[in-house]
Computed example of a mutant assay.
Amino acid sequence: MTADFDLDGLAAGLTAEVTEADERLFAVLVDTTLDAAMRERIRTPGVVMPAQQSVLAVHWHPEHVPMDLLRQRIEASYPAMRTSLIIPTQHNQLLEYGPYSGVEVDCYSRGFNQKVQLLLHFRTERMGDAHVLKSMLAHTHAYRSGQLFDYLFTVTKPDEERLALAARESGSDEAVVACARACCLKLAALLEKHEGSIPVDAIKNKLVRNFVEGQRPVLGNALANRVQVFLKEVKAVVKARFPLTYFYRTSEFIEEVRGLGGGVVIPHPEQFWPILLANYDVDGYEVWNPQSQRYTEFLISVLCEKNRLRRDGERRMLVFMGDDTHMGEKTLAVSDPAKARREIGLQPAWDDLAIGKKLIVADMDRARVIEEYAARLDG
């Protein structure tokens, strides 16, 4: 299959045939090893907060970066750190950082008929008894790699209904769709060719985005940007059509966590807003992260009101903020600039004056949340 386009005066040619340049690009994108320069880049923080004494980081993704390097980066980022609660939350993979372990899990909220996510946190020493939880996570983890292939097949087979919807939502024409198909055909062929030798951590949806980014020298910026917009819509359609029955229910995960003495936090409430109405047995809600900033003050007020109305003996809902850092982005030659700028524990909303007023009313700050949540996990 060959597609040749002239878009906005820019000549671009692309075929679905895999070239040597595609092989080299693919090898870079799926390589999770770190050379000396990468390791030094990980050790060296992008931002240093010399005066911050309390570090709360309970929503971040190590990806393929070793914990010893992350520890060095965190310590360099916060030289005045005195109190901290730092727990990794890899997608559907339980990881430990010192005394605590965590995971961000995909699950199904039956009451709202939608997929949601939970942040689960534990004392590491209790994970020896987490056989059921680990089995649930192993099943759920397969969803992400499976979805990548569904994503690619939607474009390469193709699924005309899904493609038409994505094209309409993104305003994409036939040339853009054909170019996206050529890129996905290349990537699908490379995945098939190298099946069995690709690290599991590399098989995820963002491989599509990164592969297209690597084609910019051929496509030009205008066409590459339009292809990315179209493929983002395809991904949204694929996610929306994924069968929810695949996932364990939210209540099932919460029940298992409570049996292990763990904690539960709702991330991305701006995205999963109906869950605020569910009265799930959780410890708190994330009111800010780099993707969810619009309703921070409102969400703090909601939690404050929930706490005001709680019954005797009920624990209060805590305010959390998540940096949602993806450390793998810092190792890529081609990365998402917005994600690459994130840093573990960097949550400037805590120090925003307008938000600070709401936090004072709610009787919340970083140090207090660290103290209260750690006490629950340790209890």
Results as ranks from 00 to 15, higher is better:
3 A>I: 13
5 F>Q: 12
5 F>W: 13
6 D>R: 12
6 D>A: 14
8 D>I: 07
30 V>M: 00
41 R>L: 12
43 R>V: 08
43 R>Q: 13
51 A>I: 06
58 V>P: 06
58 V>H: 08
59 H>N: 12
60 W>K: 07
61 H>C: 06
64 H>G: 02
65 V>P: 02
81 M>I: 12
88 P>Y: 05
99 P>V: 07
111 G>Q: 07
115 K>R: 15
118 L>W: 03
118 L>K: 03
119 L>Y: 02
120 L>R: 01
142 A>E: 15
143 Y>K: 04
151 Y>D: 02
154 T>Y: 04
156 T>G: 06
160 E>S: 13
164 A>Y: 05
174 E>Q: 10
175 A>L: 13
176 V>M: 05
178 A>F: 03
181 R>I: 08
185 L>F: 07
187 L>G: 00
190 L>D: 00
201 D>K: 07
201 D>G: 06
205 N>L: 08
205 N>G: 02
206 K>E: 10
209 R>M: 14
210 N>P: 01
210 N>Q: 14
219 L>T: 00
222 A>K: 14
224 A>V: 00
227 V>C: 04
239 K>H: 12
240 A>E: 14
243 P>E: 07
245 T>A: 15
247 F>E: 02
248 Y>A: 09
252 E>Y: 07
253 F>D: 00
271 Q>G: 00
276 L>S: 05
278 A>W: 01
279 N>F: 11
285 Y>G: 07
286 E>F: 09
288 W>D: 11
299 L>Y: 13
303 L>Q: 04
312 D>P: 13
314 E>A: 14
315 R>M: 11
317 M>H: 11
319 V>L: 06
321 M>C: 08
329 E>A: 11
341 R>C: 12
342 R>F: 15
344 I>T: 03
350 W>Y: 11
356 G>Q: 09
357 K>M: 09
361 V>Y: 08
366 R>C: 14
372 E>S: 08
